[in-house]
Write a protein that binds this DNA or RNA. Structure first.
Lengths: 159, 159
DNA sequence: TATTGTTATACTCTATAACTATA
DNA sequence: TATAGTTATAGAGTATAACAATA
């Protein structure tokens, strides 16, 4: 492999180019690139921090919205969170299998299901929220408390 | 479907709850949720803006880094951009098929390939960069020029 | 006719593991 | 032994299309 090299203080020996020496060129000016890398970091930390609960970000978002808005239809949840309705079917299947969420018949529209957390789901969500708050502290530690708040403010329009 | 309703100015008729009326609860305080929604918006705009060139964000990032650092190995590109080396193989296959990138034998390590843009790749990348700059202007219009710069600053450590 | 939930398909992405040829 | 590139597989995630039941 042709590797560019650089002089160092260690007696002048050539060492392989460290990762950070590879320039990003135009990429450095693209918000999307930085946002994507940050999002990967943040999801990895979320998954790791909530690993003991075996809950992923999307599952957490679905349970949180159902918990705060009992009786919502699948379409309403899907639209609110920007999830495809076809995908929500499988997400709910797995949450129902774990007895966190129930689909019951809607009183007014026989096409749709009313979504509720079960008693077990409510207790579980309380735990998830504690762990998620811990994850959020990791974010604040990583980028700074004020930067985190600025970020939330700037991006509020997308939520 | 059981739908919460609200009084409106239109003579007091009940209307279905609009999406925005569904509360996010704890989700509103999670940077990851906002970042994820923003990232989806930004990638969609990128893909749409570069549709005429048929180039996606990851392909663009790979070509930009190779263009700025000719002769890099696949491992070096993969590590720098946080892409799995197994995935980079397929990404390069498609870029090579379109004659944008070449894999040539490394002079010093017969296990690795030296990556270069072809003449056609260089010309194409110049066009991609013009379109990507247009996409970046959409981002600035969406969140504001200063907010975009603040964002780049806050997230620079992840790039 | 349109909508809700469902099923199915295809393609992208992520995460591994294993193989080969080299080092 | 370890590394670079490759192949393969499995699980998420995304994007569609089509269908039955119902509006």
């Amino acid at each position: 492999m042709r590797r560019s090299t650089l002089r160092t203080a260690n007696g002048g020996a050539d060492i392989a180019t460290p990762e950070r020496e590879i320039g990003l060129d135009a990429l450095a000016g693209h918000a999307g690139y930085a946002v994507r890398r940050f999002q990967l970091w943040i999801f990895q930390d979320f998954i790791k921090t909530l690993a003991e609960a075996d809950i992923r970000p999307t599952q957490y978002s679905v349970m949180t919205v159902i918990g705060a808005n009992p009786g919502l239809s699948q379409m309403a949840v899907a639209k609110r969170l920007g999830i495809e309705r076809a995908r929500l079917v499988h997400l709910l299947d797995s949450l129902e299998r774990r007895n966190f969420v129930s689909r019951s018949a809607s009183a007014t529209d026989r096409r749709s299901h009313a979504l509720h957390l079960t008693a077990r789901g409510k207790a579980a969500l309380a735990q998830f929220k504690r762990l998620a708050a811990e994850h959020e502290r990791h974010v604040a530690e990583k980028i700074g408390k004020e930067n985190r708040e600025r970020l939330l403010q700037i991006l509020a329009r997308f939520t």
